[in-house]
Amino acid sequence: MTGISWRHVALWAVFIIFMLLLPEMVSKGTLRTVIFANFLAIFAISWDVISGRTGYISFGHPFLIGIGAYTTAILSYRFGMPVGLSIPLAVCVTMVAGTLFFLPALRVKGSYFALVTLAFMELMYQLVQVIRPDLTGGTRGMSGVTTLARGAVNNYYLSFGLMIVIAVSMWVLMKTRFGTALSAIGMNEESVRGSGLSTTRLKLFAFMVSAMVAGLGGAFYVHYLGSIAPRALFDINFVFTIIVAVLIGGASTIVGPMLGAFFLTFLLEYLRPYLPGAERYFIYGSIALVIYMYQPKGLYEIVMQQWRKYRVVKAGET
């Protein structure tokens, strides 16, 4: 945690170069899969900032993503606002709504926090369908929302660019003492308060960062899909996919959620011929449960352990 070394920078650079060359190497179909992986990685990183670090589990993250997505969709589709304006506005609205959403959650601890967030998501799901269906499109949602780019390759570059900017900036942010303090809250909140820090302010700030990332991801996502529907968005299966991505990859890291998102998306692609429908959640969930029970810190930690072992063996040989 003591800062950023050249090796880190080199690893990020190798990863970015690889991803930039990807469209040359794989088919358009695979590229579309990677686009989904990029968006899932953004949502997973957003979830991890609040839940993976501080241990306050959000079961209602689609609430934040949905606000970002709906705001920009309504502004651009219903009011013809240019996307360049509607997306930043959507991010601001998500941050404000996220803060309002967090205020009651501030008063509650542990399990109750998870439940309030779940209640918020369900509330949103029901309200979206009833309140002003002329704006939200009610149960059927909206289609024909402006898309930002045409074709798989352009959309891939757009989604990857967004993901990598978010990932790297979150990675840098979490390397600072702020990141350390958030992890400390996850380990023992009283001791953080006992160190003279306002945990409320720390959590609130973490929540706003998380909401910002979720809002960005949600807004770009709706402009990629071109459509939005409440059932697909405010769905417990969606929460599940985000959480499972983080857990499989490794909570409280940045690489972990990315790793998990890619793993899940490719697993889905690989399983598609055998399990076309919702059954894939069965495989997802089972894998996630096994990994979670065996190593709660996920694949990232498993890989790191092997790496450390390898280094010890290597050091022993020379």
Binding site: G55, I57, F59, G110, S111, A114, I236, N237, V239, F240, I243, V244, L247, A278, E279, R280, Y281, F282, Y284, G285, S286, A288, L289, Y292, M293, P296
Partner: peptide
């Protein structure tokens, strides 16, 4: 608690599937 909540939620979705 956190681990139980997360793993029971995952289990719920697994059972659903």
């Amino acid at each position: 608690h956190v681990a139980v909540e997360i793993s029971t939620l995952i289990l719920a979705v697994v059972i659903q599937a």
